[in-house]
């Protein structure tokens, strides 16, 4: 799963590779920071910070996400991806917890619209990850037989410049 936000004049791109625990990277400008946090997968609870837990609350709305953590509240406003599309809804997020059963492309492959890139299975349902248009697969985050959490970012895709 990938989301892009802005907060004031700061811009963030977040890629999650795991939800249990929360694991992934934050891109801010040239800077890349990694995060790994144990938190319950619900909108409110307590998060481990060092040897203590602190309360958090998360509320998603149409324009972004409100997060309160240890008394500080942030409103992260959704921002658009490079292609103009909001790629928090890209087809590359695992729609539910499950297992990757096939990876049909390699990193660097140039693919066509509709080409199947990856297949995963969950609750006896098979889900095909397809290219939304012509472009290049720039990274693959999971291999066959990997178990994935709901919402995690399965692979990176760079649409062909039009």
């Amino acid at each position: 799963m990938r989301k892009q936000f802005k907060l004031g004049d700061r811009h963030f791109k977040i890629d999650w590779t795991g939800i249990h625990p929360l694991h992934g990277t934050i891109h801010e400008g040239e800077e890349v920071r990694e995060f790994k946090l144990a938190a319950p997968a619900s909108g409110s609870g307590r998060l481990h910070l060092g040897d203590r837990t602190v309360p958090y609350f998360v509320t998603g709305v149409a324009g972004g996400v409100w997060v309160t953590l240890a008394g500080e509240t942030f409103f992260f406003e959704n921002s658009k991806g490079k292609g103009g599309a909001d790629d928090s809804h890209d087809g590359f997020a695992a729609p539910m917890p499950g297992k990757v059963i096939k990876v049909l492309v390699n990193q660097g492959d140039v693919v066509e619209k509709g080409q199947v890139l990856m297949v995963m299975e969950a609750m006896k349902m098979e889900h095909r990850i397809e290219a939304p248009g012509p472009g290049t697969v720039t990274a693959i985050h999971f291999q066959a037989d990997d178990l994935v959490d709901q919402g995690v970012h399965l692979l990176d895709f760079q649409p062909e410049a039009s």
Partner: peptide, 17 residues
């Protein structure tokens, strides 16, 4: 100071509210 943790938590903003 906790902005990265807060950003990570946005993943949970979608769930069943």
């Amino acid at each position: 100071g906790l902005i990265d943790q807060a950003l990570a938590l946005t993943a949970l903003g979608a769930s069943g509210r």
